[in-house]
Simulated scan of single mutants.
Amino acid sequence: MRTQGDAMTVYVIVQLTFRKRDAYDRYQARFADVFRRFNGRLLAADEKPQVLEGQWQGDKIVLLSFPDETSYRDWADSPAYQEIARDRKAGADAVALLVRGIDGYRR
């Protein structure tokens, strides 16, 4: 059972559609160095996901996790990430979702 003040894992799901691959590649080359400074985990990054249902028009899907929303925001709002994010924004259109984890779910 969660007590007040406990952190809940959050996930970031990003669907990318490339516009300028060279700009996105610059972002990708610098991503790991910046990301490892924070408390997140890269769970998946796939340019060829298997579509199980519906239609998907993106070029890449990325799944990140953070121990809590504060950790995510520390990374996303950091000057180091904001600097490299310029290349991501120039190189790809993105749909990004912040999703709260389910803690203690029982069937």
Rank of each mutant, 00 (worst) to 15 (best):
G5H: 04
V10N: 12
L64E: 02
G91M: 12
Y105V: 15
G58A: 13
V99S: 11
A80E: 15
F66G: 04
I61K: 08
A94T: 11
A92W: 01
M1C: 11
I102Q: 03
G91F: 12
A94G: 02
Y81K: 03
I13E: 04
P67H: 02
R100I: 07
E83G: 03
Y105A: 15
R36F: 05
A44E: 04
F18C: 09
Y105N: 05
A29I: 01
Q57H: 11
T70N: 08
Q4L: 14
R36P: 09
A92G: 04
G104V: 05
R2S: 10
I102H: 03
A32L: 10
A94E: 05
E53T: 06
G104L: 05
A90D: 10
E53M: 11
D103G: 11
Y105E: 06
R26Y: 02
V62L: 13
R30N: 10
D87Q: 05
K48N: 11
Q4R: 07
L98C: 13
Q15D: 11
I13M: 13
D87H: 08
L16A: 14
I61L: 14
F18K: 08
W75S: 06
L52V: 15
V62E: 04
V12K: 09
D93N: 07
Y81I: 02
D59N: 09
D59M: 07
A23W: 01
F38K: 04
P49C: 15
V12H: 05
R86M: 03
A94W: 00
Y72S: 05
R86Y: 01
Y27V: 09
D46R: 15
A90R: 12
G40F: 00
R106F: 09
R86V: 15
T17N: 09
R30C: 03
V62Y: 01
L16Y: 03
G91Q: 08
I61E: 02
L63F: 03
L43M: 10
E53C: 07
S71H: 01
S78M: 05
R37C: 08
A90G: 08
F18S: 05
Q4P: 08
R106M: 07
A7V: 14
V95S: 12
V62R: 08
K60T: 00
